[in-house]
Design a protein around this nucleic acid. Structure first.
Length: 728
DNA sequence: AAGTTCCGAGTTTTT
DNA sequence: CTCGGAACTT
């Protein structure tokens, strides 16, 4: 098979299907030979197509065997899609090709070389939720104050260090904070090591260290992989970049594809600079820009270009299209968020009545909190919708409980799993008992499971019986399910542990959905196809569940409006897009406006949002909005002002009363609230600070505050009641 | 040990 | 406002 691919393919292959469907820039990227390649791929410019065709080109024209190619992405979805499309193009499954996410590939390496990586054979991957629990456990052991040092902060700190490739010993301590965090990091690490669990960032760090510490292994993989391809390169963090660079060595060639204008994950360690660094570290690098957009109308594209043009430090691309101008962009100023949502629902209704599919519509928002009002509006109009993000299937409590039991069947010493379910359903093992077990475990340097065996010796009668009951139950389960199929095992576990009854007894609709979810888990087990037939199925399933959040396919068939955050919309496209809440303080988010760098990331997010739209784009905002329980008044987003006015048209519902609106200075009345006494943008006089311009309002009644940009003193928030402002 | 109430915080998220 | 966790009660 391998020999076959290497030689005769060169002359036998018909390369027309590989290069024919490409424009000249795409073709240049696909057929580039010698050295490394950086593809700067604008939104909708056929990035995935280039990657897929390049893989085909490498294997069929340059004669690389599938096993010599490694392609890495960020999401499982992207990895699946790439694999699928390569298959379609080549007509054969690229089985020996490594295609996966950074984490997936790292996991694969660690599974293969667990001993060299210093791990136990059946180490488990834990998600962010588990990680936080472990950190809290560590806090308790260290006697740290959770009020002074929030565990979430420690989690963030630890992940940030790992993303930078830093172990506790590398952490430079220069104040009490870093000192404490380093201490937590250290204790956390040793706990994970002892228990045999690995967090997401650890996968990458370990995989990197594996090669660092075992040059022989590195040499092996360097010899194997002749070509590396990286998708979404602008999203790589330091450790991912280091991993790639190490694997590439001096020999392998690298194709990196990315778009600096779509870098929106800086806040979680992604380094946009890696794109610049690539040119230096992987020299010589040829750069190809894909600038023709096949997705959007000219109007939408112009708007996107105008917004992103405000950013500095771009690599610079000029996206263009052959498409028609198309519809103008519509801007709607709602009275409040309810009005905004109603408008969106009405327009979607119109779209559907015009004969279009609901699935062609996306509603994009900056933060998840905005989704509820929109949901309610869609519900009222009976428009089916689907929300992306939020809790993913394998992150739901009931599913995680079931998985924890399954994990225990694989590894009894998985303390994280025991802690999770030893008293779920409640079986009389409370905090006190658990505390005793923990102490004993720590004292003997053993797992919770181990000390639970000796419950009789360390616990009072009733508690000891409860713990023994738990131990016996797990053992019995393991026995009965010994030669069960995966789904039978899952079913047995869900029933046998009392989990099903427990959730069924929960009051309200919640219990109902949880039971349904558990049934769904059994279905997922039925449908699961193990990667390696020769290995036990359960551990593989658990790894897959941990590494793939498990986007639910269940109701994917229904034709539904798609709702998601701007972040999760990256990579998708829709004929009709609503970008809602385009208001200052919401988008750009108020946490991001201070620092120029973060503001630029917000702007890129806006760029991503606009470029999702193919035919028609709506921008909506609310002149008054209930935020954290208080009424706030935000002016339209600065990003909207960046769009040339001839591309935008302001719309209103036929039924709306006329009122002063949006783009310029606005005095707005909120339904049920007190109208702000000054218009935004109005000049006012203050007894002490002098003259200024009204920028913003927040709250109502005695708490109402107003932000004024004083000519002499700059922007200040003032309590309206005391400020005694005079209109000028 | 389990259930209830109160308090405070509150971008974005994949793996 | 709405969720989650801590403190409090039963």
């Amino acid at each position: 098979m391998r020999g076959q691919l290497n030689k005769p393919f060169l002359c036998l292959m018909d390369i027309t299907p590989i290069i024919d469907p490409l424009n000249s820039a795409q073709r240049q990227a696909v057929t580039h030979s010698d050295g490394n390649l950086l593809v700067l791929a604008g939104a909708g410019s056929g990035k995935t197509r280039v990657l897929v065709h390049r893989i085909a080109w490498l294997s069929q024209v340059e004669g690389l065997a599938p096993h010599q190619i490694l392609a890495v992405t960020f999401t499982n979805k992207a990895a699946r899609e790439m694999r699928e499309r390569v298959y379609q193009l080549l007509g054969q499954a690229p089985r020996s090709m490594w295609v996966g996410t950074f984490h997936g590939l790292a996991h694969r390496l660690l599974k293969m070389h667990w001993r060299d990586a210093g791990l136990s054979e059946n180490f488990q991957v834990m998600d962010a939720d588990d990680q936080l629990r472990v950190i809290k456990r560590v806090y308790a052991n260290l006697g740290l104050d959770t009020d002074r040092w929030p565990p979430r902060q420690a989690q963030w700190f630890i992940n940030a260090q790992k993303d930078e490739g830093l172990r506790p010993r590398h952490v430079q301590v220069d104040d009490l904070f870093t000192g404490t965090m380093r201490q937590v990091y250290e204790a956390y690490e040793s706990h994970c090591q002892q228990v045999g669990v690995v967090d997401f960032a650890e996968l990458l760090l370990r995989a990197h260290e594996l090669w660092l510490n075992h040059p022989d292994l590195l040499a092996h993989y360097r010899q194997r992989f002749r070509h590396l391809l990286v998708d979404e390169f602008q999203d790589t963090n330091a450790i991912q970049y280091a991993w790639l660079r190490m694997l590439a060595g001096d020999e392998a060639r690298v194709t990196a594809v990315g778009d600096d204008d779509q870098s929106i994950y800086g806040w979680r360690g992604a380094r946009i600079e890696n794109i610049h660094q690539f040119g230096q570290d992987f020299s010589p690098v040829e750069t190809v820009k894909l600038e023709q957009n096949y997705r959007s109308t000219a109007t939408i594209l112009q708007a996107a270009n105008a917004v992103i043009a405000q950013n500095n430090a771009r690599l610079g691309k000029d996206l263009w299209t052959q498409s028609e101008d198309g519809d103008v962009i519509s801007l709607y100023a709602g009275f409040n968020e309810l009005d905004e949502a109603r408008f969106v629902a009405t327009r979607i209704q119109g779209w559907v009545e015009a004969g279009h599919a609901r699935g062609e519509v996306a509603v994009l928002y900056r933060s998840n909190a905005q989704s509820r009002v929109l949901e309610e509006a869609l519900l009222r109009q009976q428009i089916p919708y689907r929300i992306y993000g939020g809790h993913r299937f394998y992150e739901r409590a009931e599913i995680k409980n079931a998985l924890a039991y399954l994990r225990l069947l694989v590894n009894r010493h998985d303390d994280t799993a025991i802690e999770r379910v030893i008293n779920v359903p409640t079986r009389g093992i409370g905090e006190k008992t658990l505390q005793r077990l923990r102490e004993s475990a720590r004292e003997h340097n053993e797992s919770l499971w181990h000390v639970a065996q000796y419950a009789q010796d360390i616990l009072p009668g009733r508690a000891a019986n409860a713990v023994q009951g738990f131990v016996a139950m797990i053992d019995t389960l393991a026995q009965t399910t010994g030669d069960f199929d995966l789904w039978q095992t899952a079913e047995q576990v869900i029933g046998g542990t009392g989990l099903l009854d427990f959730h069924a007894r929960e009051k309200g609709e919640r219990g109902q959905t949880r039971v349904e979810n558990l049934a769904e888990l059994v279905n997922a087990c039925r449908a699961y196809i193990p990667e390696d037939e020769a290995q036990p199925v359960l551990p593989q399933f658990l790894d897959a569940a941990a590494l793939d959040g498990g986007e639910r396919q269940a109701d994917a068939d229904e034709d539904a409006v798609q709702m998601m955050t701007l972040h999760s919309a990256k990579g998708l496209e829709f004929p009709l897009v609503f970008m809602v809440g385009v208001e200052e303080n919401l988008f750009p988010h108020k946490m991001s406006v201070e620092e120029p760098g973060r503001l630029e990331e917000e702007r890129r997010l806006c760029y991503v949002g606009i470029t999702r739209a193919m035919q028609k784009l709506y921008l909506t905002f609310a002149e008054s909005r209930q935020l954290h329980g208080v009424e706030s008044y935000n002016p339209v987003s600065r990003f909207v002002r960046d769009i040339p006015s001839h591309l935008i048209e302001e719309v209103r519902l036929a039924s709306s009363v006329s009122r002063p609106t949006s783009m310029g200075a606005t005095g707005v009345s909120a339904q049920g609230g007190e109208p702000p006494p000054f218009g935004l943008g109005q000049r006012v006089l203050h007894g002490v600070f002098g003259e200024g311009v009204v920028l913003n309002f927040e709250g109502s009644g005695p708490h109402a505050r107003v932000q004024v940009n004083f000519d002499a003193e700059g922007a200040k928030w003032l309590v309206l009641q005391y400020a005694k402002l005079q209109p000028v």
